[in-house]
Write a protein that binds this DNA or RNA. Structure first.
Lengths: 205, 205
DNA sequence: CGCTGCTGTTCCGTAAACGGAACGATCGGA
DNA sequence: TCCGATCGTTCCGTTTACGGAACAGCAGCG
């Protein structure tokens, strides 16, 4: 019996000698936890302030389907899940496993990659990796009331915040503001800015 | 009508003013292209040298299901796709969109993250991002005949290749060997090694 | 030559994911 | 207070993904 495992170290049973489990062992990170997927979809939808009915209509799926998906009572088809995430403007991967990220979405001088969607007792969060290239600042419209933004700068100097009262931070610095007003991001100087962006959406209701 | 779009620039219809399409526009990168997904699953399976029947049995799904999945004639359920990818030892995300990567799989001093699975006329490839920490070299068993490994070193100094005739390369260097013999990876010096690893599996038959 | 064991595909009945319609609950305005 | 609109859930008939069995095509062996 030829032992086959290819090169990059396979998951291998027993990464921690804990369980008596001889099962094939999970492939680190990704999961098919449908309830969790449903929660992430719902979090994204509510963060965008659109109703279940509206999203179902936009995505071309039945309300029953979307309801079941969000509540984790169904085991959605790829086609279904894709139709929904596409409408939410996020890659399919961002609702599957917690981290693992997806492709990038671009604006004028700003690009942001959604790394993770998660939640605690009273808010949902979207974590982005962000790059701001030198040039005219990027403007964003206001969010719903109560939304706050947290930016941590890794490299370069960033001027960001409400358009009428921007803040500035260099590498290692942190900025925070409530983003229910127009606001923007701009690199100060010639250097490109690398930063993380955390959006906090208070839980509706 | 309140305009809602959250902060990080949303996909926005019309990233290139090409089509007369007013559709919502795809979320960059991720796709639900079932035939492509099927091809990637098949590529992974054949690379590991296991039969459709065997994989179906291991994953606990019907042969008909797996056959239909690989041929793109079905629209699989998340549960199904997960059962299969879990058995293949790869994260779900790595078969969904081409790139976009998944979580990391670890060995002793080596960690490798599967970035992409793709294929050309006569081979399938698996591309990994690889990190080798200083310490005793990691050993890998032999692959099937004909498999070649290509390593490009980004940082640090790497000694890798067949156990009885290892090769060495520094940042910018490239290594290649046929990996049907036991082989390993080791960091030279105190520095951690960053590298990409490309496995080439000649197409069976 | 059969026979055995395997490959991957196709057939088929069952289980379940699907979309549409009906439902109770909530909210805002007349 | 009543009405209309919209919210999210539930009911239901249709569609389809599911697993098991039957199938054709090969390879090895007596």
């Amino acid at each position: 019996m030829p032992q086959s495992p290819p090169d990059p170290p396979r998951p291998q049973a027993g990464r921690i000698p804990a369980g008596p489990s001889t099962e094939p062992a999970e492939p680190a990170g990704a999961d098919a936890d449908t309830p969790a997927i449903g929660r992430r979809v719902r979090a994204l939808r509510e963060a965008r302030g659109i109703s279940l009915s509206a999203l179902a209509r936009l995505a071309g799926v039945g309300k029953a389907t979307l309801s079941g998906l969000e509540n984790g009572t169904r085991n959605p088809t790829l086609e279904t899940l894709y139709a929904v995430t596409a409408q939410l403007g996020v890659p399919l991967t961002s609702v599957l496993s917690g981290p693992a990220a997806g492709p990038t979405v671009r604006g004028a001088a700003v690009s942001a990659t959604l790394l993770e969607v998660f939640e605690d007792a009273d808010a949902t969060y979207e974590l982005y990796r962000m790059r701001v290239t030198p040039g005219p600042g990027q403007l964003s419209p206001a969010h719903q009331p109560g939304v706050t933004e947290h930016v941590t700068v890794f490299a370069g100097v960033l001027r960001a915040g409400p358009t009428d009262a921007p803040l500035t931070a260099a590498a290692g610095g942190h900025l925070r503001w409530t983003s229910d007003v127009p606001h923007g991001y701009a690199a100060v100087g010639d250097e490109e800015v690398a930063a993380s962006l955390l959006l906090r959406y208070p839980r509706p209701k």
